[in-house]
Write a protein that binds this DNA or RNA. Structure first.
Lengths: 117, 117
DNA sequence: CAGAAAGATAGATGACTGTCAACATAGACA
DNA sequence: TGTCTATGTTGACAGTCATCTATCTTTCTG
């Protein structure tokens, strides 16, 4: 999944279409779990920008299969990529995945926004 | 709820604490529904930056109580505020609510990120 | 090939969530 | 006061999700 949204103007400028909303909601839902958020930030801030599962499981109170499940959710949401090297599987943040979401949340809400049209 | 996170450096710079992650996950979970995403963008992009429920219900295929429920979720996530004026209840985007999340997602992922510390 | 280690998958289960119909509440107005 | 309109709340139900244990696949090493 690529999180291609047609494009990416802030959602406070004009109403999202139902289709865009469905797509985006999937990505945000993936972020809507504390374990997954921490996984993401652990991976992103890890040396080299990548981490193997063995680097991650020790950080949580949940089982290895649960970690594996969450990684899969993040991968299918277009937020992570994985690569097997020898015995280990390395995850890294998908370039641009978070950026698309950040841009959509970017909000000039300080000033009144007029109706699109 | 105020979405006060201590602060707001990008989550790709250093690992989120479990506490921060729990707080943030609640906000992202609120965004993780297509109806709520559209509600948010409809309100934000509506004339005057606000909309009453009557402006919103017609845009969806779900019942009014369901819209009311979603608005409550967004309000409790710190993303919307509401104000009753006469018969109508007006919702507007909570200033800074989305901005906190956008900043957290802000990601210099193009360049390799080194381990924190 | 056997065994070990890393990670993924399958199936089960309890908790949560989105939805609706029915009812309750708040304000406007006769 | 009573009634109408706009919203919110409650209770129920079906579907989804996070989690676990058990098992499987892949890869390395004797």
């Amino acid at each position: 999944m690529e999180l291609d949204l047609g494009c990416c103007s802030p959602m406070v400028r004009e109403p999202l279409s139902a289709k865009q909303a469905a797509r985006l909601a999937g990505a945000f839902k993936a972020l809507g779990d504390p374990v997954r958020l921490r996984l993401l930030s652990l991976i992103a801030s890890h040396a080299g920008g990548e981490a193997c599962v063995c680097d991650l499981t020790g950080e949580f109170d949940v089982s290895q299969p649960t970690i594996s499940h969450h990684l899969k959710v993040l991968r299918e949401a277009g937020l992570l990529t994985s690569q097997r090297r020898a015995t280990w599987v390395y995850y890294r943040v998908q370039p641009g995945g978070l950026a698309v979401l950040a841009q959509l949340l970017a909000a000039p809400v300080a000033e009144p926004v007029r109706a699109a049209g």
